[in-house]
Nucleic acid binder design. Structure first.
Lengths: 218, 218
DNA sequence: GGCGTACCGTACCGTACGGTACGCTCTCTA
DNA sequence: TAGAGAGCGTACCGTACGGTACGGTACGCC
């Protein structure tokens, strides 16, 4: 039988399966509604039976889709150990820009909507997957940079998790929730860069050594 | 005929109607799923026919429920014109605590989930209502305080909207998205107060004048 | 060629749920 | 005390959708 290969196992989906998952993403983004098995089969030019053979059930298909999208996001990585102030600022700026680009993208909005709706009360938490590959993944990438900044005497904080969460808040502010709730704010690259720059400066003002900043308990 | 009274009109729902809407909220919170018209009727001990007569259709019922919940949140208001540093800090702390209590509450989580799912692609945007009564309502309440703080020489900023958004980000950070995606973080009052205090101090560090109150650590 | 496998397309089934119809009871008013 | 109306409970209808079955086609292998 050997079904549900892309769900139970972590094996990468085949090229054909990837095409199916891309069809799902396409439907999520542009349609938003009628994300139905029939619609997926039609869009991907495959039979529903194949869908069920490959992904088990609708939930499995959704889960595989979320994983598939997540697997693309992990790109660009880190190798700088020695940090000076300019490099630190630049690294943080990069993270902020990347993050803003992700959360303002239509795919992220659609996927988060699905996952949140799902989280209401269901099996197989898509929410956990989205969280693991979004918020937590970027946290794990930012925190080493923060710690390197601390090691270089550029930043001061006790808890890198807490510092990261502040960074996260300064970058994202109300943007994600507004988008999820249906507001149409459109950002061009320039605005994102400006926003990211503001967040980085604010973060450095709070945690940087340059300023006297005795008040953050956590 | 004269149906859909609680939907098309802004009239407050009758006591019986309020009970129905509370039943909807109850279902949303504890069940999360099977928010079906039958379930509502059963829970509220009313007939489906009455539901349709009062609220038009399922969407109308949801809209009325969101409005009903929103109508309760607006409480406590503002009258202090003359601000000193301690009062400003206290007001901001109050806002932060209130906001954190709201967004961590199960009702808010459930309601936002519904609204976000709805925002995917639908008529009658619940998202807009939630946004108007959540994020924007608190913005309209905080901004005058910020402006009073600026008038009193306690804060420096050009754009009160931008300042508020930073405050919003510092308070909420990643909490709302994590809750919406199904993570179970539980906050007690103490933790919320501590969190709110941290956010306020950070905000004042960013926007406060160089010499704030000497006695800030309460 | 014959056979198995993989897959497409489509018809089909069962059920959940939005929405409607109808009978019954209770209350209010004349 | 009779009639009207509001509203409860329940049976019912139509449809959308998750999931299954099955025939048909292409392709590899013996």
């Amino acid at each position: 039988m050997m079904q549900a290969s892309a769900t139970t196992e972590q094996e990468a989906p085949s090229a054909r399966q990837q095409a199916v998952l891309d069809a799902v993403l396409g439907l999520m983004v542009e349609d938003g509604e009628q994300l139905t098995m029939d619609a997926v089969a039609r869009r991907a030019s495959c039979s529903k039976e194949t869908l069920y053979k490959w992904f088990g059930d609708r939930d499995g298909l959704l889960t595989a889709t979320v994983r598939w999208q997540a697997s693309r996001v992990h790109a660009g990585h880190d190798a700088a150990q020695v940090l000076d102030g300019a490099t630190l600022r630049e690294r943080l700026q990069d993270f902020a820009v990347t993050w803003l680009e992700v959360i303002t993208g239509p795919t992220s909005v659609a996927l988060n909507r699905i996952a949140i709706a799902h989280a209401g009360s269901h099996k197989s938490n898509l929410g956990g997957i989205v969280l693991a590959n979004g918020r937590f993944a970027i946290g794990e990438r930012v925190k080493p940079v923060l710690e390197a900044g601390r090691a270089a005497g550029l930043l001061t904080f006790a808890d890198s998790e807490a510092a990261f969460r502040t960074f996260f808040g300064l970058v994202g502010r109300d943007i994600q929730i507004r988008l999820l709730l249906g507001e149409t704010l459109d950002f061009d690259g320039a605005e994102i860069r400006r926003d990211a720059g503001r967040a980085v400066e604010q973060f450095l003002a709070l945690y940087g050594q340059a300023k006297p900043d005795p008040n953050h308990q956590d």
